[in-house]
Design a protein around this nucleic acid. Structure first.
Length: 208
DNA sequence: CCACCGGCCAGCGCATGATT
DNA sequence: AATCATGCGCTGGCCGGTGG
């Protein structure tokens, strides 16, 4: 149950965003990435009106169904980092957003936030489109890629174990090769089982 | 009048089992 | 092995009641 808390402010800013604001401040997070944000530009304005002193939001929304489908966002904490040199590139609307920024006056940092399609017919072309984008545009390669991948590359990442379709996994591996990325968590823990998503029927997966 | 709340419905996201 | 059909849970949108 999510209810509007700030109707006097005009439109929405649900308790979810109150919680996100508290989380970012309490944990002193610099950069938070979100998927399935379901935000419109108006909603982002509302959140900025409430929490803009602390949060800077870059959101990319679904052109057809912004409030009910997809959407990716970066949440920057102004209290922890300078946001003056931060900008985003909308690579695939609502599904792939690249943040370029500086981190504590040191080298530049780029982060790719992805929400891959859950329809497996679209997954292969999604990863291929990303790979082509970097060969067609002069963009810094991301230092980190994270988000909702909606696939696993190894049966160990599902419980009960199950192998996903091969074509999307191959496309993802090709992208990782071309961007010089590795699954850092799995590299550090070759055989550990841990999951990011679970269903009510006790199945688990590490698709995020 | 207006702010707030609960019920209901439809669409979305994910998994699973059947079918080809 | 790939695709289809289905189910479940969650969320947003809408409506209508309620109490100040």
């Amino acid at each position: 149950m999510r209810r509007r808390l700030f109707t006097t402010q005009g439109q929405a800013a649900s308790s979810k965003w109150t919680n996100i604001h508290a989380l970012v401040r309490d944990q002193r997070l610099g950069i938070l990435t979100l998927q399935e944000t379901h935000l419109t530009p108006t909603l982002v304005d509302d959140i900025h009106n409430l929490f803009g002193h602390c949060l800077l939001i870059f959101n990319s929304s679904d052109p057809n169904n912004p409030t009910s489908s997809a959407g990716v966002a970066f949440i920057l904490n102004r209290e922890v980092m300078s946001t003056s040199h931060s900008k985003v590139h909308e690579i695939i609307p609502s599904q792939a957003l690249l943040l370029t920024t500086t981190w504590h006056n040191s080298a530049s940092l780029s982060v790719l936030n992805v929400y891959a399609p859950n329809d497996y017919h679209q997954q292969t072309s999604f990863w291929e489109t990303l790979e082509e984008y970097w060969s067609d545009h002069a963009l810094p390669k991301p230092d980190f890629m994270l988000g909702d991948f909606n696939l696993v590359e190894d049966p160990i990442d599902r419980s009960p174990p199950r192998l996903d379709l091969s074509a999307p996994s191959v496309a993802l591996q090709d992208l990782q090769l071309s961007l010089n990325l590795v699954d850092a968590w799995r590299t550090d823990r070759p055989s550990e089982r841990n999951y990011t998503f679970r269903t009510s029927s006790n199945s688990f997966s590490r698709i995020d």
